[in-house]
Design a binder for these strands. Structure first.
Length: 577
RNA sequence: GCCCCCGUAGCUCAGUGGAUAGAGCAUCCCCCUCCUAAGGGGAGGGUCGGCCGUUCGAUUCGGCCCGGGGGCGCCA
């Protein structure tokens, strides 16, 4: 059976009508779903903008469009309403074909070729591997994973990547922190700096190193603190000097401590995300940029185009020439490249790897960084429009009516893992994407912990479980339902559900276009509400055989869409609750 | 000071250049002899922060205010 989605069918018909009413006039056809069912199944607003272009009365133009509309068996009637809407009422038969179509397509229902196979990369989370992921990272993970799923569902060739900052100062601080905790275990006492990593996981790593290697990495405390500036007066200089001492005292062994801490934290992060249902095609190491000389190459590209200069011993990128408010350092006075320089190289590398478009998901605190990176890409001869940045606003934790401050270095934060264990992966994933990404997210821990059954995710999962339960009670062959004649579906609740199911592909396309996976979450709530309404209104297993088959086909199709939608959000669709 | 986000029902938030602006929670009333009551039905609750503009039409777009949150490093 050839099934054409009503929206694309109608769009085609209106396009033909417009071509005959106003040849040569380029106008956009918008088909929307009216809020009230009395206004039909679709409303076309084409007459109103066209009337303006033609300087005519919109309702007259609408009448002409309607007259020019090609005959179509699926259209029951049209009406001209309000200021010039053309409301379209579909024949029930047009809607009743849908369950069979959905059941035939299965998990493919809702997919589209919107992306036309475009290769695009989505980079997200990319938290420094210096400690456990916290609830803020969780939002980026849930959002990024869902968005990537939606993009893949709509015909994009999606590559998921995590950028590992394994080369910077933060990693040195983690290595130092681990070593200092280790020294304590060996009996060497060096005051632990307040701005080093305070978390208990550092002590755990130190204990492992001590258990494995005993005193092998022990150095006298006096040597560790030799010529180190005062911690109170110069906290960052104090830290840097300790790092320098660690490197010279340990020699090649420093790489072991550094590597051990990195592997431990990265491994922990990987496990955490895997348990959360968030997977990556590639974990890209910042260090490989350094090792392959890509940073020098990126800076050379900037230099070639004349956009860098020396000042105060540092090398600067003239980002003000590209709309930034001040120029930025790419190589520090000490000869070390900045994170910014690495990021330019990284993005040039992304483009070289053949992604036609690259989507970065960043925390909102990085917004000032966008102009800088895009400017640098342009300066290096790349097209900055191939980079899209989706900013995700902060997740703020509340507990006991108090905002909880978070700091990775101070070890004060609620980890993603703790949150997942408290409220469950499904509720977590869903809660995170229930807010649009540019909205601040207040995460109320008390609510999440104590009233997790109020979480809307259960409402949706319950709808799925109810259907599964009915179909199990029925016990028939699903193949029968694919061929069921759905003509008996005329109850208002049944027609409402059919309309809702027809919306799914449109919702997925909108979610992809607007980088808005939350649209899926809200859609699923509506879909579940329609199902629950029908469940209470109608007995599925009663009535004559024809009606029963039709209703079972309808709810089986609903189950499929619930499943597909939940899958996009990384949430389970349980058969029992 | 500059930049970003937000302001919609008591609370938390969706939504849209169009017709009578929605949901959940909370409050009140009602519905299990029946496929899962983690459900359903109903009631109350709104100057869509304010002013000005663009438009046939603005809660939606633009400008200016007011209020809340965040960012502005030779950190990453």
């Amino acid at each position: 059976m050839n099934y054409i989605e009503p929206k694309s069918l109608l769009t085609g018909l209106f396009r033909q009508a417009l071509a005959s009413v106003a040849p040569g006039v380029d106008s956009v056809i918008e088909l929307t779903r009216p809020k009230q069912s009395s206004h039909g199944d679709y409303a076309c607003n084409a007459a109103m903008p066209l009337a303006r272009a033609l300087k005519r009365n919109p309702r007259e133009v609408a009448a002409e469009i309607v007259a020019a509309l090609p005959a179509c068996a699926d259209i029951a009637r049209t009406e001209i309403a309000g200021p010039g809407f053309i409301n379209v009422f579909l024949e029930p038969a047009a809607k009743q074909r849908l369950p069979g179509h959905i059941l035939a397509r299965g998990g493919d229902y809702g997919k589209s070729d919107l992306g036309r196979g475009e290769r695009l990369q989505v980079e997200f989370v990319s938290a420094n591997p210096t400690g456990p992921l916290h609830v803020g990272h969780g939002r980026g993970a849930a959002f990024g994973a869902s968005l990537a799923n939606v993009l893949a569902f709509t015909g994009h060739d999606v590559y998921r990547e995590y950028y590992v900052n394994d080369a910077g100062r933060q990693m040195d601080i983690l290595a130092l922190s681990t070593w200092l905790r280790y020294l304590e275990l060996t009996g060497e006492f060096v005051p632990f700096p307040a701005n080093a990593y305070q978390g208990d996981y550092v002590k755990v790593m130190a204990e492992s190193v001590f258990a494995l290697h005993g005193d092998r990495y022990r150095q006298p405390a006096a040597a560790v603190t030799a010529a180190v500036p005062d911690a109170a007066a110069e906290p960052e200089g104090h830290l840097d000097a300790l790092i320098a001492n660690a490197k010279s005292l340990l020699g090649a062994d420093y790489a072991y401590i550094h590597g051990y801490a990195l592997e431990e934290q990265l491994g922990d992060c990987r496990n955490d995300l895997t348990e959360f249902g968030v997977n990556f095609d590639h974990w890209f190491s910042e260090r490989t940029l350094h090792d392959a000389g890509l940073i020098e190459r990126a800076v050379a590209a900037l230099r070639k185009h004349g956009h860098v200069y020396d000042q105060d011993g540092a090398l600067w990128f003239r980002s003000t020439a590209f709309g930034d408010e001040k120029d930025r350092v790419v190589r520090r006075e000490n000869g070390i490249y900045t994170y910014f320089a690495a990021d330019i190289a990284y993005h040039l590398n992304k483009f070289e790897r053949g992604f036609s478009r690259v989507i970065d998901i960043w925390g909102a605190d990085h917004h000032g960084y966008i102009a800088r990176v895009k400017g640098a890409l342009k300066a290096a001869g790349a097209d900055p429009d191939r980079l899209a940045v989706a900013l995700v606003q902060f997740a703020v934790l509340w507990e006991g009516g108090q905002k909880k401050s978070m700091s990775t270095r101070a070890g004060q934060y609620v980890t993603l893992r703790e949150l997942r264990h408290e409220v469950g992966n499904d509720a977590c994933r869903f809660f995170y994407v229930l807010r649009k990404s540019d909205q601040h997210l207040d995460f109320d821990l008390d609510l999440a912990k104590s009233q997790s059954s109020d979480n809307p995710v259960y409402y949706i999962q319950y709808a799925h479980a109810r259907i599964a339960s009915v179909l199990a009670a029925w016990g028939g062959d699903m193949e029968e339902l694919k061929a069921a004649d759905c003509a008996p579906l005329v109850h208002p609740q049944e027609l409402a559900l059919l309309n809702r199911l027809a919306e799914f592909p449109e919702i997925c396309a909108a979610a992809a276009r607007e980088f808005s996976p939350h649209l899926i979450a809200y859609y699923l709530k509506d879909l579940a509400a329609d199902l629950h309404g029908l469940y209470v209104a109608c007995q599925f297993l009663a009535g004559d055989a024809a009606l029963r088959q039709a209703r079972l086909a309808l709810i089986a199709a609903t189950r499929q869409v619930l499943r597909s939608g939940l899958d996009l959000l990384g949430v389970c669709a349980p058969d029992k609750m």
